[in-house]
Design a protein around this nucleic acid. Structure first.
Length: 563
RNA sequence: GCUCCCGUAGUUCAAUGGAUAGAAUACAGGUUUGCGGAACCUGCGAUUUAGGUUCGACUCCUAACGGGAGCACCA
């Protein structure tokens, strides 16, 4: 594809040079005006240089415009507002970019910004013995989207998840299972209930607390002779199967699961080896003095001799670095763990500088609910499956009301799309307020709206007469360029920005703009009208369908051909 | 209490330091018997407050007010 930014920068540089002003191309910043009516690119160089050249910004801008060399890709350049230079791209450019979209199809949007980079991406780490709840849904959605986006930008992505398979919380659940007597076989739901039961007992009942602590020790020690270890093993298995099932339903898979039990052993060893160099003893525990670096002190090995979350994450670093060769390790978690990872990273700096420098810890916001419509098990937290099932059902009802056929497969795509889109359209760090009735809309700025637009495109294309020379797009002479062309060529830029900033929501916002431009244009006239322009209108439709399909894929959302 | 994050239409979200702050939803009205009405069009409506920085501030700085997170053996 033509690097249009490069073209514009070159001619602006030349124009300035003619006036005796030398600037580097990097100083010529181009941006898309907020309003499509203001042109395709705007440049603020005149406002930046005006002061030192002793001219008014508008005057300087006029000078630049009149000195601009001609380019076949620029139809017009004009001065606007306080001194912007607005560039309007030519029909030749749009014709060319449109045929490239159609040629590239499913690779449209792929870029090379992260070519030859190896990235380890860790997300969706479950707490075994606790069901996959709404928070995990958030984590998985961002994690899966980033995996795909970074991959599209050319990187080689290794997907990792770090299940917590040993913790006092797990001991509470195991205690609950023993207590309720469902020790022979049990379900994931029963594990959830047992966890709530155990947590409450731990706080209220001293005997239970003592027994839970003992269970915890036996699990840490992997004492196979005990009843609790047998139950633990079975529960761990059930939890893992559940994890695989739900992540598959959400469309993600992992190259490797690294378990906390393994990380704990290694982490503990590292902490001990680095005491007192990095860590120190305090009240029978081994801690890191984060307070000396503006953070806080916290325990790495507790007084019972077990590695805490901090030691486990340190051990995980060691495992990652010894097993894989990569440029960056990216970990995605909830915002509440932000300070925790700052501490991990700070202490890692003193153990192995590489560990700190090559690790990025990203956080997404928390999700809160406004309505209590979703049935909630285990401590009032709605499960991912409950939410998906409820939305799936609504998609079915919606289809029945509209008297259209709906397979369960399609309903599932719509449900997953609606839920994921609600999450992903918000910038990553922000908390999300989730309302089953409003947020999970099928209308307007929503996943199903984009899916619908795609299905609509496909439907038109299916009815089209056999095309002539499909990849050779010819723009009609009397054609007025629409917002669709003006948006389409930007897709690769949007993907690039999302990949470099780790912000999938740029893609969601872009797709919504594109779909709404398409639907708006669609409503204005007929595509299959038998005219000479029909061919071009179909090309526009096909290109839109590729952008939407690829964009939704990057968000982890499937596109049904019909809905 | 200390540290960090966030305050935008009634509601849920956008907006590289740029132009008239953009959508969706809700509400009100409309869409020539036309390829998919999960759509389209019109209207209504917002930057918490007070200072500062500059050609220009939702965005950066300071303070107040409001909300959230973290702060020693949970993860």
């Amino acid at each position: 594809m033509v690097n249009i930014q490069d073209v514009i920068q070159k001619i602006v540089k030349e124009a300035l040079s003619g006036a005796g002003v030398e600037v580097g191309e990097a100083e010529i910043v181009l941006e898309h005006p907020a309003d499509l009516a203001h042109g395709d690119y705007s440049c603020n160089i005149a406002m930046r240089l005006a002061k030192e050249l002793g001219k008014s910004p508008r005057e300087l801008a006029e000078n630049i415009v009149s000195a601009l060399p001609k380019s076949e890709y620029i139809s017009k350049a004009e001065v606007a507002g306080p001194g912007f230079i607005n560039f309007y791209l030519s029909k030749e450019f749009f014709e060319r970019s449109l045929s490239e979209v159609i040629k590239e199809k499913e690779s449209f949007g792929k870029g090379g910004q992260l070519k030859d980079k190896k990235i380890l991406l860790e997300h969706s780490s479950p707490n075994l013995f606790k069901p996959f709840h709404i928070g995990h849904l958030l984590n998985n959605t961002y994690g899966e989207a980033l995996t795909r986006i970074i991959g599209f930008a050319g990187a080689d992505v290794v997907k990792i998840s770090f299940p917590s398979d040993v913790s006092p919380g797990i001991a509470k659940a195991v205690w609950g299972i023993i207590e309720t007597g469902v020790i022979d076989d049990f379900t994931i739901e029963q594990i959830g209930d047992a966890y709530v039961h155990g947590s409450n007992a731990y706080k209220e009942d001293a005997n239970a607390k003592e027994r839970i602590d003992e269970i915890n020790k036996n699990i840490y020690k992997k004492d196979e002779s005990t009843l609790e270890y047998k139950i633990y093993k079975r529960g761990r298995q059930i939890s893992l199967e559940y994890f695989e099932q739900i992540t598959e339903r959400l469309g993600s898979e992992f190259n490797e699961l690294i378990f906390e039990t393994d990380a704990e052993i290694i982490g503990k060893r590292i902490v001990i080896e680095n005491t007192p160099k990095v860590f120190e003893e305090s009240d029978g525990a081994i801690i890191f003095r984060g307070s000396e670096y503006g953070l806080f002190d916290n325990v790495y090995i507790n007084s019972a001799g077990f590695g805490t979350y901090l030691a486990k994450d340190t051990g995980l670093l060691s495992i990652k670095f010894s097993k894989y060769d990569f440029d960056k390790s990216v970990t995605i978690t909830d915002i509440e763990q932000k300070q925790h990872f700052e501490l991990v990273k700070k202490s890692a700096e003193f153990i192995n500088k590489d560990w700190a420098e090559k690790s990025d810890y990203l956080q997404h916001g928390r999700l809160s609910l406004t309505t209590g419509k979703i049935s909630s098990r285990s401590g009032g937290v709605p499960l991912a499956t409950d939410i998906l099932n409820a939305v799936n059902e609504r998609a079915m009802v919606r289809a029945t009301e509209a008297k259209s056929e709906m397979t369960n497969e399609t309903a599932e795509m719509i449900a997953v799309g609606a839920v994921k889109y609600t999450i992903i359209k918000v910038s990553m760090g922000k908390n999300i307020i989730f309302d089953m009735e409003k947020s999970l809309s099928f209308e307007g700025d929503s996943g199903p709206y984009l899916q619908y637009t795609y299905a609509r495109c496909k439907s038109v294309l299916a009815k089209a007469p056999p095309k002539r020379g499909e990849t050779n797009v010819q723009i009609p002479k009397d054609w007025e360029v629409t917002n669709i062309e003006k948006l389409l060529y930007r897709f690769p830029e949007v993907v690039e920005r999302a990949a470099l900033e780790y912000e999938p929501h740029y893609i969601a916002n872009y797709l919504n703009d594109l779909a709404s431009a398409y639907n708006s244009w669609y409503g204005q006239g007929k595509i299959l009208d038998g005219s000479d322009n029909e061919h071009y209108k179909l090309a526009l439709t096909e290109a839109t369908s590729h952008a939407i399909k690829n964009g939704l894929y990057l968000l982890g959302i499937e596109t049904p051909e019909r809905m």
